[in-house]
């Protein structure tokens, strides 16, 4: 773990200024759940750490046009248990509660959740090559232990996945990321926030180095009655997703008016395919109609030695999630107290 200097930002402008000045060698810290881990692994070696926890960004409040605004510094726990989040965006509550542990959710913030780094074994082990850590050094995961790696949107440079649960729900909800930088504020649609690895796996999102996430806007959602987050993992809790699915349905009787499906554990970003989702529009919500949608979502998937199963598993998880969503949003207590895959 490197020694670094520490600054406590008193305002958003101060935070942005400090990050700018650090010239790529600065890191914001809030919950610290991912950064401190990576500092100890020597994956992150910043010269300066900028503490943003005292900024006034921890509120959850009504947003524009009937939406909800989640402060970047609101904790994952406060967000998941917020009554309005539970009522209007149940898939988000469930996704957050399916991730990490209660302790980590008490620490982790919404902004930080978006910026989580991959859990690929080779990224985490600095004795190994990794194009994401050391561009050009190679990707041993492609021919190595790649159970946790992706099957969609991978490249010959990187097959890492984005590890967040929360982001999968945010992608399905078409959240908007509000950021602030030296040039002022701007918004980034969620689908454009995370990037695919391509030839530059070291780039994971479209946030500029001196920008800070200030809030996440959730647009008004017609999906609250039929929202699920299905997570399949190697143990009942406290494990990253092998495959996860946020499935949101807007139903008219048993007919689908609109559908949103986002996939986790399979790609470098929360995976969506609006054109595939559109296949469901106007169809009845039945397994027969879900199967081709699941197949289409994984049409271009490519499996590797230890993770090829994710393609079949992913399809089945999509069908399951859509079936559960059709039945209706489960009570939070059921989800909280049970394995999310049930």
């Amino acid at each position: 773990m490197i020694n670094f200097s520490y600054t406590r930002a008193g305002s958003v402008a101060e935070a942005v200024g400090a990050k700018s000045k650090a010239n790529g060698a600065g890191r914001f810290i809030a919950g610290g759940t991912n950064l401190v881990d990576l500092l100890k692994e020597n994956v992150e070696r910043p010269r300066q750490v900028i503490d943003i926890t005292r900024l006034p960004l921890a509120t959850i409040e009504e947003g524009p046009n009937g939406g909800l605004r989640l402060g970047a510094l609101a904790t994952n726990a406060d967000t998941a248990y917020h009554p309005e989040v539970q009522r209007r965006y149940p898939a988000l509550s469930r996704a957050i509660l399916a991730g990490a542990s209660a302790q980590l959710r008490n620490m982790a913030t919404n902004g930080g959740n978006l910026l989580q780094r991959t859990r690929c074994y080779y990224f985490y082990d600095v004795a190994m090559a990794c194009n994401k850590r050391r561009p050009g050094s190679g990707c041993p995961a492609i021919s190595g232990q790649n159970r946790v790696c992706g099957v969609l949107g991978t490249s010959d440079q990187c097959i890492a996945t984005h590890p967040s649960d929360m982001c999968i729900a945010l992608a399905a909800l078409e959240a908007v990321v509000r950021v602030s930088g030296p040039q002022g504020e701007r918004t980034i649609p969620f689908a454009e926030f995370h990037t695919l690895p391509g030839d530059t796996p070291q780039i994971e999102n479209t946030l500029a180095p001196d920008e800070i996430i200030t809030a996440i806007d959730l647009p008004e959602s017609p999906y609250a009655e039929h929202s699920v987050y299905t997570k399949v993992r190697d143990r009942a809790s406290y494990a990253f997703a092998l495959v996860s699915v946020a499935a949101l349905l807007e139903l008219d009787g048993d007919m689908v008016k609109s559908a949103r499906i986002a996939l986790g554990g399979v790609a470098h970003k929360p995976w969506r395919s609006p054109e595939v989702e559109a296949l469901l529009t106007g169809k009845t919500a039945t397994k027969e109609n879900f199967l081709p949608v699941a197949a289409a979502l994984f049409h271009d998937a490519r499996g590797y030695e230890h993770n090829a199963f994710k393609i079949e598993l992913g399809k089945r998880a999509v069908v399951r999630a859509l079936q559960l969503a059709t039945k209706g949003t489960a009570s939070i207590r059921d989800v909280n107290g049970q394995t999310a895959d049930a």
Binding site: R119, Y121, Y122, Y124, D125, A127, M128, P140, S143, G144, Q145, V148, D234, R235, A236, S237, Y238, A239, F240, T339
Partner: peptide, 20 residues
């Protein structure tokens, strides 16, 4: 290929949690 255990931590070397 590298002769090394890659899941060398408690997050990836799974042992049961309470919910299991």
């Amino acid at each position: 290929k590298v002769g090394r255990f890659m899941n060398h931590n408690y997050a990836e070397y799974h042992i049961p949690v309470n919910a299991d």
